[in-house]
Design a protein around this nucleic acid. Sequence first.
DNA 1: CCTCTGTAAACAAACGTTTGTTATGCTCCC
DNA 2: GGGAGCATAACAAACGTTTGTTTACAGAGG
Lengths: 189, 189
Amino acid sequence: MTRLTRDDIVVASGKRFATYGYHGTSMRDLGDDLGILGSSIYAHVGGKHELLVAVVERASDLFSASAAAAIALGGDPDDTLKALVAGHIDVLVDHAAEAKTFLNEAWFLEESDRLHVIQIRNDYEAVFRRTIQLGVDDGTFRRGVDVEVASIYILSILNAIERWFRPNGRLDRAELATDMHRFIVEGLT
Amino acid sequence: MTRLTRDDIVVASGKRFATYGYHGTSMRDLGDDLGILGSSIYAHVGGKHELLVAVVERASDLFSASAAAAIALGGDPDDTLKALVAGHIDVLVDHAAEAKTFLNEAWFLEESDRLHVIQIRNDYEAVFRRTIQLGVDDGTFRRGVDVEVASIYILSILNAIERWFRPNGRLDRAELATDMHRFIVEGLT
DNA sequence: CCTCTGTAAACAAACGTTTGTTATGCTCCC
DNA sequence: GGGAGCATAACAAACGTTTGTTTACAGAGG
């Protein structure tokens, strides 16, 4: 009988929340996944909402770290964009449950936590905006690109990965990153 | 005292499901929105799951109709793509609640209904795939486009609209459709 | 009068959570 | 080295509330 840590419970929560949603998950469901009673979870956490906070926090840390790493590379805007795309894919593939919960369930956080997440998400998006703007300024990308909206398009493509990509499918993550970057830069032509 | 129809209840359900999710909505919540008791809803529908079916069905009908209309126009592949994009935006803007529920909550339908929705969604996606393939064949789009994945990219951008677009924002829907079509065809360059 | 839409009250089940207790180790001290 | 003492992690049972749903009944309109 191996005993459980708070971390084990957060991981299991992420999976449940990602699959069935926060409101679609009961403490007893979670207990079943972990092989303990639902009530026993309260020895590790103060309540259900704390688990959502923990899962979402994990994901937002990963995304933030990915953006920081892409910037730290210090190449031209197109290189940074490549790194941002590849990094986002890595987070989504390697931490699918947390990322999915972050994208779909953060809305159900309490006011203050939710505002904090929105802040982090906006900071992350700002890295995309700045990168594209730099690319427009130095002529890598066309003048007249609506930087704000283009960032949203790119993140839309990236975030949707969670809904269709399977690691053992036709494409591996490297092919996906390459193909996606090309689509973003060149479109269908 | 204006009396309610089944339709009124389905509309209210759509809004609630879109905002709080299927599991985050109770029959009493719904009753409050409608100004009646939660239990009174059972005079109109057989159960909560029936409401989800009705809302999702509405949305899928709208999407199917949009695709059919785009094809009926009968222009070249790029014209069809333009119409598909504009039509998708129209559905998402004019029927936001139903569309959002369709995109995010259909997973919680019972097995058979869920499979039916997946079928419809796949048919809809197939229209995008066919259109792009035609464009590749006649030279409108570049050879080497991964048609399957490109369709997913485009639908990813389209479906995410629900998460950020506000009808009274900086862009109206016509500008959005134009900008989005250009991004899809030309990318950042 | 009869159907339809609503209320009122209740149902069993499931919900998040609390409480009291037990089993299992770890650490310190004789 | 072996108890004593304590923290941890779990169970078992119950708490009060909310859930989806059912039943009995009232009023209003065609």
